[in-house]
Design a protein around this nucleic acid. Structure first.
Length: 503
RNA sequence: CGGGAUGUGGCUCAGUCUGGUAGAGCACAGCGUUCGGGACGCUGGGGCCGGAGGUUCAAAUCCUCUCAUCCCGACCA
C-alpha cells in the first residue's frame, strides 16, 4: 500500500488557491492549455458539461421568443468605429487579419502575403455586425422586435489568461435584440438577466446577486449594464452573466431605423446580453474541493459512475452484466429534461479508479461487487459528502430514488454556497474597518462581500480601486434605499452597494 | 509594453557554476502478484537537452544572437 494523501489535490485551496484551480481542471480532465498562447483545449469531460449548459440555457432563451442565428467571425474594421465608446473599449484587445494568403519566404518558411484593402478584426463581440443586418431588416415597426442569439467563439487578446476564466478565445452566446420602444428594450434587458439568474442558480447551483454596474464598469457603448455576481470560495466576486440596455447608441451607429405607427422615422432601441465558458470557471471555484471537481447534477457530464468490483476467482461476467443492467435501469429515468447518464468504469487499476471519478466530480459513485449482488444492494458515495462516507442501499430503492438523490445533491450544493456567501457578506460603515478588511486580503482570503454606502462619485470609486483593488461589483436591485454616509468621502448616500475583489 | 525568471522523454524536474557516453520520479507498454480507501515486483519503449551561430580535440554545460513560455504590473466576459 502506498501512503495516502489527505487530499486528492495538492495544493489545497487554502495553500494556493490559483494553483488549486489549475490542478482541479487538470486532474478532472476537463481542459488543458494549448500550444496557442492564451487558448485552451476543452476535453470531452469539460465539453460535455458545456453542451449540457448550452442545451438548457438555449431552451430558456427560446421560451422568451429568441431565435438563433449566425453572423461572421470577421468584422470589417470600419464597423467597429461606428460607436465611439465601443471602439475605445475593445480596440486594445482585437486580433486583426491583414492578409489573405501565405507565400514561401527565402528561409523556406511562410510569410503573409496578399494584403487586404480593409483589415478584418476577429469579433470580440458582434454588436456592430449584427447591427448592420438589423438595419437592413428593419423598415417598419411591424419588423420589431428582432430577438436574436448566436452561439459563437470570440477573441479578446487579453494580457493574462486563465483557463475558463479568461482565455484569448472563448465560447459564448451573445443575444442581440432591437425594439420599437425604450420601455420594451429595458424590459428585455431585465428579462434576460432573469433567465441568467434562473440558469446560474438552478442549474449551476451558484447563488448570485443581481444588480446594475456603475458607469465606469459599464459595457462600452451601453446606457445601462446589469449583471449577476457570485462569490467564489476565496471570497472574490465573479460576474456570471451580463445584460445590457444599449439605448439608441448602436441603432444610431448602425442606422437601425424604422417607421413607427405614426409614420415617423425613429431609431430602434437595442439590447445585448451574454454568458460564456467563464461560467464553468465560476462553477469550479464555487463548488469544487480539495479532492477535485464537484459537478452540479443538473449539468454534470455524467450523473453516475458504476465501478464493478471484480474478484480474482469470482464470476466477473455476472458482475459485469449486473453493472450493465443497473446502467440500463438508471438511464431510463428522466432527470430535468434529459436521461440520467451513467458511466461504467471497469479498468483494472485498483483503488486509483475510484479517485479518478472523485476528481472528475461525478455526483454519484456506485461500487458493485459480488457482496452487493448477493444482498441485492449497491454501495453508494455522493460527491457532496466526504469520500469515505459510503453507504449500502437496496438496489431497487437506489434506482427508484436516483433523481431524488441528484436533486438533493443539487440543493445541497446551492445551499452550501449560499450559506458561505452569507457568512462572508457584511455591512460596513467605518472606513477604517473597510480598509483593514481588504488590506489583509490575499491568497485564499480576499476579505468579503461588503455592502457599504457610496456617494455615487467616480472619484470615490476610483480611489478605493486604487487603494485596495476593490471594486463596486454592482448596485444590487434588492437592496432597499437607506440613508447613510459614503464609505470613502463620508458624503450623504442613499443606498448600499456591493464591494469586492473581482476576477 | 515595463520588472523578474525559465526552456532537458508525455509531465515535474536534476545535471550547467567546475565542458568528457543523457539522468530521476511520475506517466506509458508487457508479464506476474494484487484489488470493497489512492497497489507492488520485474522487464521494456521513448529525449540529436527551444532555435541559429561561435569557442573547443570535445558543448545540455562557455560566448553571441534569436524564439517561446511563466510570474509580477497596466486591460478585461
Amino acid at each position: 500500500m502506498a501512503k495516502k494523501n489527505k487530499t486528492a489535490i495538492t495544493p489545497t485551496r487554502e495553500q494556493d488557491y490559483p494553483a488549486w484551480y489549475q490542478e482541479v481542471i487538470k486532474v478532472s480532465d476537463m481542459a488543458e492549455n494549448s500550444p496557442v498562447r492564451g487558448c485552451m483545449v476543452i476535453k470531452p469531460w469539460g465539453y460535455a458539461l458545456w453542451e449540457n449548459m448550452v442545451r438548457e440555457i438555449d431552451a430558456m432563451f427560446k421560451e422568451t421568443g429568441v431565435k438563433n442565428a449566425y453572423f461572421p467571425l470577421f468584422i470589417p474594421l470600419s464597423y467597429l468605429e461606428k460607436e465611439a465608446e465601443h471602439v475605445e473599449g475593445f480596440a486594445k484587445e482585437c486580433a486583426v487579419v491583414t492578409h489573405h494568403k501565405l507565400e514561401k519566404d527565402d528561409k523556406g518558411g511562410l510569410k503573409p502575403a496578399g494584403k487586404l484593402a480593409e483589415p478584418l478584426i476577429v469579433r470580440p463581440t458582434s454588436e456592430t455586425i449584427i447591427g448592420e443586418s438589423m438595419a437592413k431588416w428593419t423598415s417598419s415597426y411591424r419588423d420589431l422586435p428582432i430577438l436574436l442569439n448566436q452561439w459563437a467563439n470570440v477573441v479578446r487578446w487579453e494580457m493574462r489568461t486563465r483557463m475558463f476564466l479568461r482565455t484569448s478565445e472563448f465560447l459564448w452566446q451573445e443575444g442581440h435584440t432591437a425594439h420599437a420602444t425604450e420601455q420594451e428594450a429595458k424590459e428585455r434587458t431585465m428579462l434576460m438577466l432573469d433567465v441568467y439568474t434562473k440558469f446560474v442558480e438552478e442549474y449551476l447551483a451558484m447563488p448570485v446577486i443581481r444588480g446594475r454596474k456603475t458607469v465606469s464598469e459599464r459595457f462600452p457603448g451601453a446606457d445601462d449594464t446589469t449583471c449577476i455576481e457570485a462569490m467564489m470560495q476565496d471570497k472574490r466576486a465573479l460576474q456570471a452573466g451580463t445584460s445590457h440596455f444599449l439605448g439608441q447608441n448602436f441603432a444610431k451607429g448602425s442606422n437601425i431605423k424604422f417607421q413607427n405607427e405614426e409614420g415617423e422615422e425613429a431609431y430602434a432601441w437595442t439590447t445585448s446580453w451574454g454568458t460564456s465558458t467563464r461560467m464553468i470557471g465560476g462553477m469550479i471555484m464555487v463548488h469544487s474541493d480539495d479532492d477535485g471537481l464537484v459537478l452540479p447534477p443538473r449539468v454534470a457530464s455524467a450523473h453516475v459512475v458504476i465501478l464493478p468490483i471484480f474478484k480474482k476467482d469470482g464470476d466477473n461476467r455476472a458482475v459485469k452484466e449486473s453493472a450493465q443492467d443497473l446502467k440500463d435501469a438508471l438511464e431510463e429515468k428522466q432527470y430535468h429534461g434529459r436521461n440520467v447518464t451513467v458511466e461504467i468504469d471497469d479498468r483494472d487499476i485498483g483503488g486509483a479508479r475510484g479517485w479518478d471519478w472523485v476528481k472528475k466530480g461525478v455526483p454519484v459513485r456506485i461500487e458493485l461487487g459480488p457482496r452487493d449482488m448477493a444482498q441485492n444492494s449497491v454501495f453508494m458515495a455522493r460527491r457532496d459528502e466526504p469520500s469515505s462516507q459510503k453507504q449500502s442501499m437496496n438496489r431497487e430503492e437506489f434506482i427508484g430514488q436516483i433523481t431524488d438523490i441528484l436533486d438533493n445533491i443539487q440543493d445541497n450544493l446551492f445551499n452550501r454556497a449560499k450559506n458561505y456567501r452569507e457568512e462572508n457578506t457584511f455591512e460596513i460603515d467605518d472606513k477604517k474597518a473597510f480598509y483593514k478588511l481588504y488590506k489583509k486580503a490575499r491568497g485564499f482570503d480576499n476579505g468579503a462581500f461588503v455592502m457599504a454606502h457610496w456617494c455615487g462619485s467616480e472619484e470615490c470609486e476610483e480611489k478605493i480601486k486604487k487603494d485596495l483593488s476593490v471594486t463596486i461589483r454592482c448596485i444590487p436591485f434588492d437592496s432597499s434605499t437607506e440613508e447613510g454616509n459614503c464609505i470613502c468621502c463620508n458624503n450623504a448616500s442613499s443606498r448600499r452597494v456591493l464591494f469586492a475583489k473581482a476576477y
